[in-house]
Design a binder for these strands. Sequence first.
DNA 1: TAGAATTACTAAAACGTTTTATTAATTTCG
DNA 2: CGAAATTAATAAAACGTTTTAGTAATTCTA
Lengths: 333, 333
Amino acid sequence: MKALSIKDIAIEAGVSITTVSFIINGKARDKSISEAVIKKVEKIITESGYKPNQIARSLRTGNSNIIGLIIEDISNSFFSRIARLIEDKAYKKGYKIIYSSTENNIDKAKELINMFKSRKIDGYIISPIKGLEEEIQQLLSDNKPVILFDRNLPGLDTSYVGADHFKATYESIESFIKTGKKRISLVTTDIDVQQITERLAAYKKALDDYEIVYDEKLVLQVPFNQEETDSMVQLEKLFHTEDIDAVLFATNYLAISGLKVLKQIDKKIGDNFSVIAYDDHEVFELHTPGISAVQQPLEEIAETVIQLILSQLSSKTKLDNQQIVIPARLIQR
Amino acid sequence: MKALSIKDIAIEAGVSITTVSFIINGKARDKSISEAVIKKVEKIITESGYKPNQIARSLRTGNSNIIGLIIEDISNSFFSRIARLIEDKAYKKGYKIIYSSTENNIDKAKELINMFKSRKIDGYIISPIKGLEEEIQQLLSDNKPVILFDRNLPGLDTSYVGADHFKATYESIESFIKTGKKRISLVTTDIDVQQITERLAAYKKALDDYEIVYDEKLVLQVPFNQEETDSMVQLEKLFHTEDIDAVLFATNYLAISGLKVLKQIDKKIGDNFSVIAYDDHEVFELHTPGISAVQQPLEEIAETVIQLILSQLSSKTKLDNQQIVIPARLIQR
DNA sequence: TAGAATTACTAAAACGTTTTATTAATTTCG
DNA sequence: CGAAATTAATAAAACGTTTTAGTAATTCTA
């Protein structure tokens, strides 16, 4: 049984396709279609359950009411929670979200953008990776709204929404120092995005301000796409060979791997050994003892992102780009 | 700058649109296009970076190379991990996945299906909720492949992939009983899906087999869309008013709420009080003490689902439906 | 060597919409 | 009262593909 088309409705109502189209799109009064006809056609539409073919619509209009969301990894709780919030909010405004993970793989990311492009996505929300500059620039040249979030790519003229990673990291390190810690380790990843490099910069700055000598042996850069077991080996080595009294983990999954290692080697977290994790996670709340964490304002980030993209979508003229940095909070546990 | 179309390529190459189309779709040799022309056109295509408009393609062919994935909540780690695995596997076969959350809201679920339908999605992977039977039946009548997973809807003639919830629950309760527990509580939700009701049935059966009297005061059915704080109040009441020596949580988020409460009221998990959670989670591994959990074979579920849907998509004739139940494992911690 | 088969290619219809330009009938107004 | 304006509707083009049903030209085959 074929789906109904606008033609079927037109025939049924005894009017032209054009008339039906105007009614569907709310342009009926504008185009001075009589009330009687409007009523009749609307009745037929609801009774028949006719739904316009969005593909045909997109082909003709060039847009889709779909926003593409490109993130690192949907199975990471930071991203899945953001995705859910963004989805919710977009949905209420009549937009659908399509999301997909890049796994920090530049080729996959490019392919995703291409796929979204060829589906005439209306706008893009991207947590970018280095190497994507050209593709994003291309989107901007096509006049598609692009909002970057979580991470920024310098040199691109887009809007950006993210947490204040520098400040949050600085304050974390500061809080270690204020409780007398001297041998402070930073466990981070090797991906070269602003949000990560900023954390390293803030780490150095804080040490410097409090006149603690920077020791590169205390900084572990875990390769991004490495298996967790390998990372755990690296972490174990770090904990065994260096004399450390505090650790800041720059991502939540690194912190989780770290906690697993600490449990294995039976190194206790307490007054002599402190831990802070970046991006909160249920694990940290329930852990004994509780793990302090930098909590990014997910709700606010999602709200800001969606609001920015919607205003760009509804505006005819190109709006000014905005760089919005939202404070993050250190939750002491 | 407008995007290139097949027409531009045809003009550039000095051949017809038809010829270009045949070449793009790998039908060139079939249609006896000469090697020389094929080479020339392919060269122009790669050099110009032309990408076919998928919307136009979908409009003409009626399919999209997109599979829709409808789940309860992408921010739940069970679903986000499954989603990631399915996405990965589908991607390798040239299919894209669009996912969206129902939040167990029947209206939202119906709307999602409608949206997917009007975008001519090729196939559906659904973790269904009660009340969706009619819509799913409709998809089946349209000859669209539908695979249900995690939960089954009785009375529908579809393929299904899920874990053996009955057996896993039975064994969990049995393991409690074998360590001498007598007052065993079940914390579950009130959503009426097979996967949940099965867990209750298995609970009763296990008690019965070991001649323990079923006491409904030990079963807590938490309303699904309730705020977590409210659930925690209910849980606290349960733990305070009833004398309980073991708890099985029927979902991982309930278990997490439960652990939070136990921490708050300082009730220790140990020999006199055991806990098992359904669906593993990093929290359970890192918790002190470790929390035993029923681990669903995510990888296997994802693999089976994707394999089923791909074979249905590539087959011209309607394939027989399969009901695949995969054993779950109780991880003792 | 004449018809059949094959090779190499293409014109045009179709998919289901939106939108522009147009028509015909009616109303307004100076 | 006649021209201008408004009302009510529509025909047809366009979006960018795929695919059917061709057409010539060439090669086979008996």
